[in-house]
Amino acid sequence: MKRLASTGFGTACVLFLQGCSGWQSALDPKGPAASELAWLIWFFTALCAVIWVLVMIALAAPLLMRPRTRSEPLALDAGADHRKLRVIVIAVGLTAAIVVGLTLLSFFANRTLAAIGSDAALTIRVTGHQWWWEVRYEDATPSRILTTANEIHIPAGEPVRLLLTSTDVIHSFWIPSLAGKLDLIPGHINVLDIRADKPGVYRGQCAEFCGAQHANMGTFIIAEPRAKFDAWWNDQLQPAGPPTNGEAKNGADLFLKRPCVMCHRIGGTPAGGTVAPDLTHVASRQTIAAGTLMMSRGNLAAWIADPQGVKPGSHMPVVELNGDELNAIVAYLEGLK
């Protein structure tokens, strides 16, 4: 029993520690904002731990020490009172100094955070929906404005400005490896500046409870070298390619004839819905439905056949399709790279 308990405890510790690294961890910073915050977290924790230990020692010492026997317990001892007062004054002074010190530290950390995006060249508008993210790349040239979903590509090593808002309820945007979290509020724009120092994929998660599928509202920041990022943007601006074979052609027709067309947009086709993720290049994304499933032909079919089974309560209704229709639509979407 004891063995079991200690093994269990050990496993739990290892599992907890695993949470400290990887693609979604505030303790594994990959950008200046997150580094600043991680440093603060560690410093606060260490300092508080030291203080806690000192306080515990101060508490335990009198309990463990043999009490001094005094011949006259009620006699006044001005010297001892004075010593006690001095200890209290010093302790209060230290506490105040430490609190002020920590406040200053976090103030300066905040200033560093605020300075990250002061010269950001790229602005991305992120709109929260129940339960997915709309991502819009702003550009002075209207034809270069790009709308996509759930995956945010950014150039590595460059500051990026995110404008956060929502259309339904309050969500919160949190990429732990890159920055602290910030709310998406309907009718209001919050500004978050981020920078990823190195190329990589960083996972994020909605961090404000927003309804049934809050847990399945993930997002990904994909940081890549500038050239690759520019190429990606240009690719995404292209309208969807024409279907390549008979089955996919069928699928394209079905997509326009069935309810899909009411909600989704596919650039270059009459499908222009804006209430659901843009599917123009859906197959170029790595996941389906805000990180719920990995992108693959099978998972696409699973999602379209039964979105309410995969993500119960999601705002995509079950559209009744027979096997051939489902295959055709999947064949079409799979080709939208």
């Binding site: 004839k257 069935r258 309810p259 067309v261 009411m262 209704p317 079950v318 559209v319 009744e320």
Partner: peptide, 8 residues
């Protein structure tokens, strides 16, 4: 018809 699923 066919543009909105019946339950909707």
């Amino acid at each position: 018809r066919d543009k909105i699923p019946d339950d909707q």
